[in-house]
Design a protein around this nucleic acid. Structure first.
Length: 647
RNA sequence: GCCGAUGUAGCUCAGGGGUAGAGCAACUGAUUCGUAAUCAGUAGGUCGGGGGUUCAAUUCCCCCCGUCGGCUCCA
């Protein structure tokens, strides 16, 4: 006997009853918009037969996360069916739903081409039109192995063998058979809106030791409108691409003659960076950090002591010979800060000690990994290392976390994904210290009132950490800040302090970066603001433009006055029409344009126009300056929060 | 590093075995103009680099480099 509940109603059913039978009996309306159901919390298909006992049924809407996953998973099967019918050489690997879509990996003799993609899409449309039902069938593992052996599907066999289950589930639609745990939508006709987006090579099981397969990516949505909206979002993201804007706005470039992954900061980009750095330094001084500078190269022994030489050698640039000694360019700053600490005897009275540096480091990244400013071979970390007694850990972490959020908010980021990663299986340090550190991190997070996720066992071997990802205007998450407790380096470098009794003690170290790297953070800022930086960051904040050359002398005075007041200002006296000058300034995304014509000159004013299309009545320069005064500050300062800003 | 695509003027792109073309930008001149493109003219390229095939290569072949989409990595 099955006791089924749905939408607050109940019914009793005989054995062999399917989910669909129950829904039809209790509440047909629940079918609307649903792609599958949850039975007792587990996702199932409509045609699944219910087991004896209690069955709580909840529909899964096609617009929910779970519903979309099912829809996309089904779409990946349809794609695989289309590929199998078009390409006899294709053997199936895996085809899951992923964030924003799905993919399927195939082992093929000849890689796919763009034309293949078009043909596959057409094939999928046929299959959807034919509306084949998805039919689940349970096989014993040995029968399933035999089945996939007959079908010539070695990857499926490998998966079954690894499952080590007695029974496996197989889904069929039309003449297509695939190993799959389901659930699926009832039939292929349910896939209303899909699109294949790209294809690329991908290793079997993600390991480069394995054969490279060909992966096709696609996406599917509940409706054509939702798909369109998604594609529009992708277009929007493309428009904001920092590599494109970086070139158009003259922010940065790279050069073949210099080398991949090495960034040239052009004057406009360098100006933004300078503003960021000035703000960063002022805030660190205000928060009792000591700013330091350290060399770019050092003897390789430093990295042997730190352990990086053994662990991360493939990411270090090769050593250079200096009078018989091996030197490398630094991949990180920590050993230098430790050496500064160790240059004199430290007492518990000195702690905590906070060394901060905008330290430029070089790491060898494989060519295929490089990406704009986000993945480079030379970058500047906004690094700091804090040395403290175990008793100071809790307050220190709280301080660092608040400082982090303060800085990120200053740049206009207010949404975060926060992760706490705890002790992994392989670790160094005392259990009691790990407990102390994890507790301190957790308490600090709790005190912010922000939501966070715990990644159990995902900490680094040397200590637990907090990672903060910032969400940009399009809701994309960017990994920037990290706060890591380190029990390892103080040990390896024999870092000590003297306690109240004069005994030698081991300090705890925190390694932290707020923006992560200036390159990556800049890339993120560019995309967040689509290149239209807020006034305080804009490379050129205002441009004075004349209507005719009668106004040149007065315009020059206006420019001088603004410049004197600390505004980054340009003057456009070219013999061009005003509309042309406006257009160009808009394309350069300059926050304010100040129009100077005969009328303004006569009244000693200027007519401002803001980025976009907002125009203002003519005003005096003093009026303009007082109007933009607040805007020309980091965002947190405007909100009256703590902090010593550049005002 | 691997798979695939790609590299032609500053930018966006067309072309194609007989040493290259457009639009925008640049430069020169005319125009003195009021909130997103005034008109005309001029100049600009060892077709990513190297090697090979050929009477002849930017075009075909090979190698390398960069870039793009992924895989992998991200202390």
């Amino acid at each position: 006997m099955i006791r089924a509940r749905l939408a607050g109603k109940e019914g009793e059913y005989a054995q062999g009853t399917t989910v669909l039978d129950v829904i039809k009996d209790i509440d047909k309306a629940a079918l609307k918009n649903a792609v599958a159901v949850k039975v007792n919390g587990r996702a199932r298909g409509f045609k699944d037969v219910l087991e004896d006992g209690e069955a709580v049924i909840e529909p899964i809407g096609s617009d929910t996360k779970e519903g979309l996953e099912i829809l996309r998973h089904s779409a990946s099967h349809v794609m695989a069916q289309a590929v199998k019918s078009l390409r006899k050489d294709a053997r199936l690997a895996i085809g899951p739903a992923i964030e924003d879509g799905f993919y399927y990996d195939f082992d093929v003799d000849r890689p796919f081409t763009p034309e293949d993609l078009v043909a596959i899409e057409a094939g999928m449309k046929e299959i959807i039109k034919a509306d084949y039902p998805f039919v689940a069938e349970t096989f014993s593992s040995s029968d399933a192995l035999a089945l996939f052996e007959r079908m010539g599907e070695p990857y499926k066999k490998e998966i079954i063998e690894e499952l080590k289950a007695d029974e496996v589930c197989v889904y069929k639609q039309g003449d297509f058979i695939d190993l799959c745990r389901g659930p699926h939508v009832p039939s292929t006709g349910w896939i209303k809106a899909f699109k294949l987006t790209s294809f690329a090579g991908a290793y079997w099981r993600g390991s480069e030791k394995n054969r490279m397969l060909q992966r096709i990516y696609g996406t599917a949505f509940a409706s054509k409108q939702a798909l369109e909206a998604h594609l529009t979002r992708l277009e929007e993201a493309k428009k904001r691409d920092h590599r494109k804007l970086g070139r158009e706005l003259g922010l940065f470039s790279t050069s073949d003659d210099i080398g991949a992954g090495l960034t040239l900061w052009h004057p406009a980009g360098a100006t933004v960076r300078r503003v960021i750095e000035d703000f960063w330094k002022a805030e660190h001084v205000a928060n009792d950090y000591s700013l330091v500078y350290t060399p770019h190269i050092a003897q390789v022994g430093l990295w042997k002591t730190s352990g990086h030489w053994d662990f991360y050698r493939e990411n270090l640039f090769s050593p250079m010979d200096v009078e018989g000694q091996d030197y490398i360019v630094k991949p990180m700053n920590c050993p230098f800060h430790i050496e500064i600490y160790k240059s004199g005897l430290k007492s518990y009275r000195d702690l905590p000690i906070r060394y901060a540096e905008l330290g430029t480091v070089y790491r060898y990244e494989r060519s295929g990994a490089l990406h704009g400013l986000l993945r480079v071979r030379g970058f500047t970390q906004d690094d700091a290392h804090i040395f403290m007694t175990p008793a100071q850990l809790k307050d220190e972490i709280k301080g660092v976390l608040n400082f982090t959020l303060y800085i990120l908010k200053a740049f206009g980021f207010n949404e975060f994904d926060i992760y706490l990663s705890t002790r992994p299986d392989k670790y160094v340090g005392e259990l009691e210290n790990w407990a102390l550190a994890e507790d301190a991190l957790k308490k600090a997070l709790d005190s912010t009132g922000l939501a966070y996720a715990i990644d159990p066992g995902e900490g680094v071997f040397y200590g637990p950490k907090i990672d903060v990802k910032i969400k940009d205007m399009l809701g994309r998450a960017w990994q920037c800040s990290t706060i890591q407790v380190d029990f390892n380096l103080p040990e390896r470098f024999d870092v000590t302090y003297r306690d109240e009794t004069g005994a030698e003690k081991r300090p705890i170290m925190i390694h932290r970066a707020l923006m992560g790297s200036l390159e990556r953070f800049f890339g993120c800022l560019i995309e967040h603001y689509a290149g239209a930086f807020p006034l305080w960051l804009a490379p050129v904040q205002a441009i004075v433009m004349t209507v005719t050359d009668r106004n040149n002398a007065y315009a020059e005075k206006v420019r001088a006055r603004l410049k004197q007041s600390g505004i980054r200002v340009e003057l456009d006296m070219r013999n061009e029409k005003l509309g042309f000058k406006i257009r160009e300034a808009q394309l350069r995304k300059i926050p304010y344009q100040l129009v100077i014509g005969d009328a303004e000159e006569k009244d000693g004013k200027a007519a401002p126009r803001a980025m976009g299309s907002k125009t203002f009545e003519p005003m005096t320069i003093d009026e303009f300056l007082s109007r933009v005064k607040d805007e020309n500050r980091p965002l947190v300062a405007r909100e009256g929060l703590q902090g010593n800003t550049l005002s």
